[in-house]
Each structure stands twice: as C-alpha cells, then as structure tokens.
Design a protein around this nucleic acid. Structure first.
Length: 428
DNA sequence: GCGTAGATAAACAATT
DNA sequence: CAATTGTTTATCTACG
C-alpha cells in the first residue's frame, strides 16, 4: 500500500508546473481575489523572506536578529492573502483544512512530542531559570509547561530526563545551599565546559540561521521543495514530496506559549485567527523557511530532529570522524565545529584521547572504575555564570520557534509513522 | 554489518 | 514507609 499521502498529492510538486505565477516563488500564488495580495507583493514577500535568511547567513546575524526579521516578514506574510500551491491548496484533500484550526494553534505547536532531545529540553529549562539551575522537579515542570505533549505522554519521559541528567556530562549537580531547602535532590546546572556543545546543538536547529539544514550545499534538484519537515524519514524516502497535514495535528497547540521566557524574544506576531488559510500561511512560511536555500546548488534535505542529536543527549559532541561527516555541512556557522569542539575542550588537549569524554559513562575509560556517583560527587561545582548571550539567543530562538517546529515535526512524524505502519501492515 | 547516539525501560540505591 | 531522586544497565531504533 502506498503512503498516507493520496496519489494526487504525492504526485504534485509545487514547482513542477504548479506555479501559477512567474517570477515568484513557485510555492505561492494569488489566493481569493478578496484577500489575495498582488503577485508583486507576493514576490516581494517571498524574496524578502529569502533575503532575510540569506542575510542572517551571510552577515552572521544573531538568531535574535534573524528571528525579528523573519517574524516581521511572517507578519506581513500572514496578511498577504497568499495561498499555497502545495498539496495543501486542495481543501477536499487536506484534513487540516477541514479542521480549520487556528493559525495560532499551529504557531504554538501541537500537543505532540517535540522534536528536541531530552538534553535539549533540559538545557532550555535550566537556561530559562533565573539562577541557571533547577531541581529535577522544576525541569519536569518546565518541560510540561512548554511541551504539553508530556502531560499525556507515558511517564517514562521523567525517567528519561533523570537518565539524561545522570548520563550527560553537560549537566552537573550543584551544591545545594543548606539554607534553602528545596526538598529532595539537587539542583542541576549546565556544565560550562560542555556548554558550547549544547549551544552548537541549538545552532544546528532548523530555522536557526546557522542551521546546516539551511545552509547545506545541494546535491538534489532544486525544483522540489522540501516538505514541512524535510528532514523527516518520509521526506528522505519519498523523494521530497510535500507533506499534507494530518487531521488533528495542531489540536491543543495553543497551550504552548513560549513568549516571555526570554524577555528579548518577541512573540511571533501571528494573529490568532481561526481561518484555515492562516494556518496554511504559517505552514507555507515554514516551507519557505526550509526552501530558502532555493538556489539550485544549495538545496538539500534539511535535518530532522535526529540531527539535533549530534551534540547533545548523551554526548554533546561527536567523535571527530562523525564531526567530519555530518557537521561539516554547516558552512555558515561562525565557527567550524572543530573550533567549537576545541574551544569547549579549552584547548587542553582533551582531544588526545581516543574518544571524546562527553558522556558520563560510555566514554569513561576502562581504568576509570570509580562509581560514577562518587566521581561526580567529587566534581560537583558551583553553577556557571550565565553571560553567554549567544546561548541565550540560540535557546530563545529555539524556544520560540519550538511551537512551529514541533508542529511541523509532528505533522511529518505522524505521516511518516503512518507510512511506516502501512508498510508494515502491507508486509504482513 | 558495524559503531554510535539517543530513547526507553527497568532495577536499584539513596534521600526526604 | 512511600515517594522522589539519582545511577546504572540493557535493549531497541535510527543513522552514517
């Protein structure tokens, strides 16, 4: 059996003759006469978005600047009346349209599993704390607050959080002030030594200007636009076919409201209108974001959530070989990954070992027989200073875009999952 | 096929 | 004593 995507959609490539307008992004065309922007406006907005992304990349703008520009453009975009020529354009075929969820819901993110690894979530949680340290319980709370998926998720995720805290060297227990009783357990903080790795991981997040997904040189034809979440297995295995949005994907998303977590980050100025075209616009924005590497030589499947794994969960960096193979695909990063790794290691020759010591258990040497707990107890230290604006911006951007990202990711995940299940069913 | 990374489950100890 | 927290091991999946 085929994928969940109806043949009509699967076969449709927004850029393969579907473009109704010349000289503008093939993804867009004029919508209803009553609401549509002119083609010139459409082209202008499309170009502006692309320019914004390019600018962010070329000028190494901070993610904050990039976010501001992009959200401004998004705001304009959401009022432009543009409609998609992607498969989403067909209301009869598009379950999302039938649900007519609000654009705000879409922007806020679905109540689905976020595409971030636990280490990333923990990192954001801790960095969002005033003192840059949190007890486990508050880490739970932060995750729950910002990713409602976990409220109804199997309880194992808390175990995973604790597991990650224990195993990931990026996280360190902080001496608990006896005077301030926080109950059971310790406070957890980010180990400054490995902080850069987490930052790097954030930088590699989709939608971040430095994301390799947005900068990787192309080996694929540029004529096929990426799907909503083009790093998805479905995308990779489906030849880059634009995905449709499954029904209910963006339900309950409005609970995720990450604004004001980082005061310097402005909320996405998306009108909480309930029209389906608004939702489409947001989807299109994301699609444009992914398509910004529209020059033929630069298009390639952006990473999926797994790509975020490069630098965080158990290990916040890879072995040199892995760095070469995958992280080299981030040419626009202000620092190459080796530099970042070297910096994070303090240039102390830490790379001399056979493996990078990111992990707390896996990377330990055979001779390192002391129980982790005791070794760690000896190294518990005061929390790091948190004057790293770079990280704050990166984390803020990631946080802020989390909603859209999570939604898009889940859209694809669901579709991909459905495909997988169908494949398996077919096999049996 | 192999190695690595991450997610998840589980067992268990320590702590409150 | 129960609940929570922290550690460790094992297993599975995905990916390069």
């Amino acid at each position: 059996m085929g994928p969940t995507m109806p043949p009509s959609k699967k076969a449709q490539s927004p850029s393969s003759g579907a473009s109704a307008s010349q000289g503008m992004s093939p993804l867009y065309r004029q919508g209803d006469a009553a609401t549509a922007a002119s083609e010139a406006e459409a082209a202008d907005l499309s170009l502006s978005l692309s320019a914004s992304f390019s600018k962010a990349e070329d000028e190494e703008l901070t993610s904050l600047s990039w976010l501001h520009e992009s959200t401004d453009l998004l705001n304009s975009f959401s009022h432009s009346g543009l409609r998609s020529v992607s498969p989403l354009q067909d209301p009869d075929d598009d379950p999302l349209l039938g649900d007519a969820h609000s654009a705000y819901d879409l922007a806020a993110g679905a109540n689905r599993k976020p595409p971030y690894s636990f280490s990333c979530l923990i990192f954001m949680a801790i960095e969002d704390a005033p003192n840059k340290r949190l007890p486990v319980k508050d880490i739970y709370g932060w995750i729950l607050e910002h990713f409602p998926y976990f409220a109804s998720a199997p309880t194992g995720w808390k175990n995973s959080v604790r597991h990650n805290l224990s195993l990931n060297k990026c996280f360190k227990k902080v001496d608990k002030d006896r005077s301030q009783s926080i109950g059971k357990g310790s406070l957890w903080s980010i180990d400054p030594e490995y902080r850069h790795n987490l930052i790097q991981a954030l930088k590699k997040t989709p939608y971040h200007p430095y994301s390799p997904s947005l900068t990787t040189p192309s080996t694929s034809p540029p004529t096929i636009p990426p799907p909503l979440w083009s790093g998805s297995p479905l995308f990779r295995k489906n030849g880059g076919v634009l995905l449709q949005v499954p029904r209910g994907v963006i339900q309950n998303g409005a609970r995720v409201r990450s604004q004001a977590l980082f005061p310097v980050i402005r909320p996405l100025p998306v009108s909480p209108v309930g029209s389906r075209t608004s939702a489409i616009r947001l989807v299109n924005f994301a699609t444009v974001a992914l398509e910004r590497q529209d020059s033929p030589s630069r298009y390639s499947p952006p990473p999926c959530s797994e790509d975020l794994q490069d630098d965080h969960t158990y290990s916040t960096a890879k072995s040199p070989s892995r760095l070469c193979s995958s992280q080299v695909a981030a040419p626009s990063s202000p620092l190459d990954d080796d530099d970042i790794i070297r910096r994070s290691l303090g240039g102390a020759g830490a790379l001399a070992g056979s493996s990078l010591p990111w992990t707390k258990s896996r990377a330990r040497g055979i001779s390192d027989t002391l129980p982790l707990k005791k070794r760690r107890a000896a190294t518990v230290e005061k929390p790091p200073e948190s004057d790293d604006e770079e990280m704050k911006e990166a984390a803020g951007s990631l946080l802020h875009l989390a909603g859209v990202r999570a939604c898009l990711n889940n859209i694809t995940n669901r579709t991909a999952k459905g495909q997988k299940e169908q494949k398996e069913a077919l096999r049996n």
